[in-house]
């Protein structure tokens, strides 16, 4: 009964342009239509979540592992909750204390989880490309929950959804990404997503944190926030990745804050409808002041809520893809 009811959930995109996996490794791989199909699905789910606490059955009988080789609290919790709201069996697996510390390779670990019946592996790893290598070595669907400084697609999708729900569109908006672009997977995924959806992207930070070359992808690069902030419809405040920096890439936190911290003064110079995102965890007093973080321009908590919807959409759409590919596997070469 309930399954039928769920099948009637509105899907605003025709199936052929809709994204269906087989993996979510990064936004660089996806087309505009595919990204929009995920956002549409997530938007519908977000409304549904707001209206009802009832569990959905999309992932009933499915096994989802959160395979996190790197610390995470909010992303892992968000994925866990998303799986549970979709009725999956979900299990966290973190390398601390496991056989990984005994020298087992990450591929062996993933194969073990596959042998336990995993349908989807949500993977976070400090090395770029590791989710892609896993996708080539195991039969489960892989969701990249952040690989080094490479991509963090669900974070960018939830940023896009937050912008779209607040502004009604993404095309034509000017979006600033502020801070540590060099070490940020969130920045890379945002850049791909925003460019594909027709936004204008400004990368702003000190030259040691904004690598040369993004101009080639039609991004604007700026070193002085005060010069570009007034043009921004959206500013996405990235965290300083202290753990990824081997050398001091700016003279001091104080100097960084002097140039790049989002303060009330800077907000006053910005557009009145400026939307401010921050992927978190935020460093209050470094990247933004508390009154800005909690102020009217801040969408930080909307992002968290939208994150749940985005992850539910991704998991549910991947499962549909799994069904389709398993149905087609009988044909030669279908695997």
């Amino acid at each position: 009964m309930e399954r039928v009811q769920l099948g009637e959930r509105p899907r605003s995109r025709p199936a052929e342009t809709s994204w269906h996996g087989p993996h979510l490794l990064g936004l660089e791989d996806l087309s505009r239509a595919e990204i929009e199909s995920i956002l549409d699905q997530a938007d519908a789910l977000a409304r549904e979540l707001a209206a009802s606490r009832k569990k959905l059955l999309d992932l009933q009988g499915r096994v989802v592992f959160n395979l996190f080789f790197e610390n995470s609290t909010r992303t892992r919790t968000s994925f866990s909750l998303a799986s549970k709201r979709l009725s999956a069996d979900t299990q966290d697996f973190s390398p601390g204390g496991s056989s990984l510390s005994k020298g087992e390779s990450f591929i062996d670990t993933a194969k073990n989880l596959e042998a336990m019946g995993a349908d989807i592996l949500v993977v976070r790893h400090p090395t770029p490309g590791t989710p892609r290598l896993l996708s080539q070595n195991v039969g489960c669907a892989i969701v990249n929950a952040g690989d080094g400084a490479h991509e963090h697609p669900t974070q960018a999708l939830l940023d896009l959804l937050t912008i779209r729900r607040a502004k009604g569109r993404i095309e034509g908006l000017t979006v600033g990404l502020l801070g540590d672009i060099a070490h940020s997977r969130v920045a890379r995924s945002n850049i791909w997503g925003l460019l594909k959806l027709g936004a204008r992207v400004i990368l702003c930070g000190p030259p040691t944190l904004v690598p040369r070359g993004w101009e080639r992808l039609a991004c604007e690069v700026a070193y002085h926030l005060d010069e570009v902030l007034p043009r921004c419809d959206v500013i996405n405040v990235l965290r300083i990745q202290f753990e990824r920096q081997q050398n001091a890439l700016f003279p001091s936190v104080g100097e960084y804050s002097h140039f790049y911290m989002m303060t009330q003064e800077r907000i006053k110079a910005a557009r009145p409808d400026l939307l401010m995102l921050a992927p978190g965890p935020i460093n209050r007093g470094v990247e933004l002041t508390p009154e800005v973080a909690d102020g009217p321009h801040s969408a930080i908590l909307d992002q968290v809520a939208n994150g749940l919807a985005v992850r539910m959409a991704v998991l549910s759409m991947l499962c549909r893809g799994l069904d389709a590919s398993r149905a087609g596997r009988a044909a030669p070469g279908g695997g």
């Binding site: 770029p128 490309g129 400084a149 490479h150």
Partner: peptide, 17 residues
């Protein structure tokens, strides 16, 4: 080259390596 994996340039920038 400390910590490097590949040539520094456009490709390393986009791959985050």
């Amino acid at each position: 080259t400390d910590g490097g994996v590949m040539n520094e340039g456009f490709e390393s920038m986009r791959l985050g390596l």
